[in-house]
Structures are given as structure tokens and as C-alpha cells.
Design a binder for these strands. Structure first.
Lengths: 336, 336
DNA sequence: TTGTATGCGTTATCAT
DNA sequence: ATGATAACGCATACAA
């Protein structure tokens, strides 16, 4: 009770010292005796004093807030990306809290960055984390213009953008090679139609993974996939090429494949194997479970926040590629 | 470029007026001539001035931030609740932005409310929205203690808690009655094992819905369901009772049922019908699609924010039960 | 080691 | 209708 009405001045008066002394005792800056420090700290502890973030911010010209730009669309794709964004947020929140920072979320959908602008213009945050980065990202462009420190989770062609991302290329390459070592030898990559950076990295990883196993690819080894019509022609291709393993660009594609196979009573992995370049909870629930690549999304958020804090602190950090990943082997690539 | 270094004082000097005049022109409060107002506003527009949120906050003793308490667990159940929380956040963000407020998220998992405490104690928000409310909710208890305005999304037995929730009872009752009017007459409710408030409301809705159609229930009409072992005994019960429709407490249960039926080649709706008291994207993707109850979660967030803002504004709003819902009929309850 | 005075950018209270 | 000035709560350069 009695809320947070206690100010540094109250403490000073109560203890018969000056505000400066109290301030010093709290921050530990400046020369001050152990005795008074202890006395002040004790009083603070006793009366549960907490400094006003606003007053402190105004004085130091800092908000101690990090703005996290989050997808504001009604439907985040098939909701399949939501867990990623949440874990990212969790990670960022964790290291932010550790540094005494809080999280301000800015919901931006597509090109409408008005919400982000409001937050930035009103100086509500000391830095920004973009949890995704679209093609021709307006948010990134805007932030660059303002000069406010910011980092982006994901990959962009823009070199002078601090980006934190998983090593999709390396992971896909390793997984491709590993799964192919299980016996299958005629792979097809099902590529999503939207071309963002990460799909490019996955594609290259796939290609090099095949190369690692000495498998030659042709034009029909990588085909766009988006739904019913693609499914029909896909089956022809599989027959023609004698393909025996399908790599899916992401979990949405993999789930679609699994659903159609189930419907048409195509048995996996007997008819052909299936693997996904991105894991999701669904892939573990479906029968058979789908082998997939798993990343530590929380860590992604943590690193993003860490690097942003460095940037805010005046350092000059550079981009980061997280090499960690896990290949989750499930029944869909079981050796027969 | 040239950031937000522009202050109200700069404007005053540039225009040869006092800070007071500028402030008045901006806020519209106090007597001031149209001429100078226009002049100031033009200058502001021209130079893209935006007031400092911190300074304004310090002066008015307000942060213009709303704290949204979000689940901070690694795994939010089966991730099935995540879309709900996101839509809730979206809604809150929307009306908050409309009122010039921003969102500070507090990630709290279970009983660890330290993050929320930090935000509250440092006065980083003028009010709090709890996007869920657990049994013996520590966050709610803490907030009550502080006296800070807050509202909760969901239902709690605590009467002096401002809560915003969907009318689960009414919706479930209506859906139960409607689906039963399709021909089926021997229903079973599959209840989740965790007992939170909302499951209670759904259960009562189910009971009264049955009553509305003159269907008598016994002890075996409502059975707990949690996985494999329950599935086995459930099949016995269905045979014994001749049950022809399964109502599922939520989408997770419904999905589990659908998966098992698929595996054991039990045809829906031929063998029995299936309906869920909570919709999710998955329920629309599975074959056959599952009839379910759909709510406007965004609106839930909007209303929560609206009511919280009223509370912050000194009014004394009361709880709100949203009567809107939609019964999404899919093939799982198709009349044969 | 401690205290004084000033600034941070805005709003609010008085005057004028 | 407008202006000077004092808060708001904290940090800090400068004195003592």
C-alpha cells in the first residue's frame, strides 16, 4: 500500500542528508562512505523505495526501454510463425530485464509503421529490435533514417544493418547431407513461393548438401509449392524422377504434404521420405512425425537484445550468425 | 535525420513566444488566439516536433503506457493458446494507440511475477491488463495490493476484480442446443483435466444446452479427457451409451480426438459427430473440419484496454461479458 | 565524504 | 491572450 509516492527527496529528509548523497548511495557512483551508503540502502529496503523511471530517464536522457517490433497482422501466415515470434520476445525480454530494461511492443503490419513512428518520435525507447525483416522493409528504412540504434532478427541484403540470424544455410546443408546418407538418393526441394532471404539460404544449403553427397540436381529438383495444383504436378514429377525424399522449405509446406498424403493414403516413409527445414510442434504431433531442423529462437532474441544494448551503450557491434541447430529425426525419414 | 532533439523551448525561441504559449497551442488548453495557435502548429508540422514522452510524463505524473502481462512460459500449452494471446495483444494495442498510449509487455510465467513488479514499482505504466488469470493468481493479488488500475481478461471468482471475458456459458449453451438439433441426441462432453474458470462455464453451458433440447444427462455424460488412457475408456463409454456426438472442451482435445479417429480409421461424422467449444486454425484444416465456437479475441483486447483507460481516467467501470460469438459449422457435425 | 545548484522537457499556476 | 516561474524526480558538475 501507499504506492510508490516515495521520492529521493523524502529519503534525504528522513535521513537528514542531501538528495545527492542518496542518489550516490543508490548508484554507487562518486565517493561516499560505507556507513551512509548502508544507512540509505537500509532505508530504501525498509520502505521499498524504487526510483521513478521517468525522472531518471529525463535526467539521463534514456528511457530504459527497448522497443520490439512485432507482427501486427490478423493472421501471421498460418499462425505457424507465432511461436517463433513469442520465443524471440521471451529471449529479448530476458536479457533486457537483466540489464534493467523493459520491453515496449510495437505492432506493425506490413507497410503501416505508424505505431513504430509514434514510439520512436516520442522517445519511448532507446533502441529497437525488428523481429522480422521484410523485403524493402519500411521499418528498417525508417529507423536508419532516425539514427536510433536498432538490430534486426533475420537476414537482409543490406550490409550496414545489424542482423542476428540462425545459420539456415549451414543447418540445411548439414541436414540435407545427413538425411541423404540414410539411403535415399533422389531428393526434391519444395520451395515456398514467397521469396524472402531465408528461403534463399535454405535453398543454397539444400544444393550444397546434395553436392556434399555427390548428388546431381536438375531444374526439376527444386520446385515451387503452394497448394492443390502444385500437388498434382508434384506427383507426376515424383514418378518421373523416381524421387524418394521430399525436403520442405518450412513446416507449413511439410504439414500440407502430410495432410495430402494422409488423404490419398500415401504412406510415409514407404512411398517417399519427408523432411522439413523448419520445425514446429505440429510436425511432432502428426503421424508419422516429420524430421525437421530446430533452432534456438529464444537465444536469437537474447542475442538480439544483447547486441542492441551494446549498440545503445555506444559500442559498435556487428551482425551475428548463430551456428547452433538441431536435427530432429522422426519417423518420416526412417530407414526402411 | 537530426532526430528528435527539438524541444518546446526551441520552438518558443524560434517563434519569439514563450514555452507556455507553445504548450497551449499544442494542448489546446487555456485561452490562446487562433493566429498564434496556427503559427505554432505550422512550425511543429514543418519541423516534425514531437513532445518528449518522459518529460510530459514527469510533469503529468503519467507514463502513457499500458502494461500487458503476457504468458512467459517456454511452451504455452500446446501453443494452441498463442493466437488468442496475440489477438488480445493486437486489440489492446489498437485502442491504446488510439488514446496515445503504448504497450509495455511483462512476461510472467507462473508464479514468478518479478518482471511485473519491476515495471510497476518503477512506474513504467499507468495500468495493467492481465491477458489471463490463473487460479490464485499472484499477479492479480499483487496488483490489488499496489492499487494500480488493472483489468483481467478471463474469469475469476474474485468479484472485485474488473474482468472482461467472452460469454462462454451462453455460447456453449447455444452451440450445444443448435448442434443437437441436427439429429444427434446422445452427447458426451470431454472435459479437460485442468479446472480453470472457463471450463466451468463451458460445462454449465453444455448442461443447459442439453436441457434446452430436453436431453437428460447422467454421470457418464461428462468425462475428463487427457490422452491415451482416456481414449480407451472413452470408446467403451461411447458404445455403452450409444453416444453419437462428442463435445470437446477446447481445440486441443478436439484435435486429439480427430487424430486418434484418423489413426483408427473411425469415420467422422459417420461414427459420431465432433464439436469443439473453442475454435482454432487447426480445426479448419483437419479433415473433416470440426464444428467449433469462435470468439472475437481482438475485441476482447480492445474492450480490456478501453475499460482500463476508463479506470485510469478515474472512472469506475465494471466487468464486461462479451455476448458475441459465432458457431462455425463444419463437416464434423454434418447431418447424414 | 557530503551538500548546493542546475538541468532534463513538459505542464500548471500564477501574474500581466 | 501571453509570459515568467515553479514544480515533476532524479543526476551531476562544482563547491565545501
Amino acid at each position: 500500500m501507499s504506492g510508490g509516492k516515495l521520492t529521493i527527496d523524502d529519503i534525504a529528509k528522513a535521513l537528514g542528508v542531501s538528495k545527492t548523497t542518496v542518489s550516490r548511495a543508490i548508484s554507487g557512483k562518486g565517493r561516499i562512505s560505507q556507513a551512509t551508503t548502508a544507512r540509505v540502502l537500509a532505508y530504501i529496503e525498509q520502505h521499498k523505495y524504487r526510483p521513478s523511471a521517468m525522472a531518471r530517464g529525463l535526467a539521463k536522457q534514456k528511457t530504459f526501454n527497448i522497443c520490439v517490433v512485432w507482427p501486427g497482422e490478423e493472421e501471421v501466415r498460418d499462425m505457424t510463425l507465432l511461436p517463433f515470434f513469442q520465443r524471440c520476445l521471451l529471449g529479448a525480454g530476458q536479457t533486457a530485464a537483466g540489464a534493467g530494461y523493459d520491453l515496449v511492443v510495437s505492432l506493425v503490419s506490413g507497410d503501416d509503421i505508424s505505431n513504430l513512428q509514434r514510439i520512436v518520435e516520442h522517445h519511448k525507447a532507446d533502441g529497437v529490435i525488428l523481429t522480422r525483416i521484410l523485403e524493402g522493409d519500411r521499418a528498417a528504412a525508417y529507423l536508419k533514417e532516425t539514427g536510433l540504434p536498432f538490430v534486426a532478427v533475420g537476414s537482409s541484403p543490406d550490409p550496414d544493418l545489424i542482423q542476428i540470424d540462425n545459420d539456415h544455410y549451414g543447418a540445411c546443408r548439414a541436414m540435407t547431407a545427413k538425411v541423404l546418407s540414410g539411403g535415399a538418393g533422389r531428393p526434391i526441394l519444395l520451395a515456398s513461393r514467397d521469396r524472402n532471404r531465408v528461403t534463399g539460404a535454405r535453398r543454397r544449403g539444400f544444393e550444397d548438401g546434395c553436392r556434399d553427397r555427390g548428388i546431381a540436381l536438375d531444374e526439376e529438383s527444386i520446385i515451387p509449392y503452394g497448394g492443390q495444383e502444385d500437388w498434382n504436378s508434384l506427383q507426376d514429377t515424383i514418378l518421373q524422377k523416381g524421387a524418394d525424399i521430399l525436403f520442405c522449405m518450412d513446416d507449413a509446406i511439410a504439414m500440407d504434404i502430410m495432410a495430402r498424403c494422409r488423404q490419398e493414403k500415401i504412406r510415409i516413409p514407404e512411398a517417399f521420405q519427408v523432411a522439413s527445414f523448419y520445425d514446429s510442434h505440429n510436425l511432432s504431433l502428426v503421424t508419422p512425425g516429420v524430421t525437421a531442423l530446430s533452432f534456438d529462437d529464444r537465444r536469437l532474441g537474447r542475442e538480439a537484445a544483447r547486441i542492441l544494448l551494446e549498440k545503445i551503450g555506444g559500442e559498435d557491434p556487428s551482425s551475428l550468425l548463430l551456428k547452433d541447430y538441431q536435427i530432429i529425426e522422426r519417423e518420416s525419414t526412417r530407414r526402411l
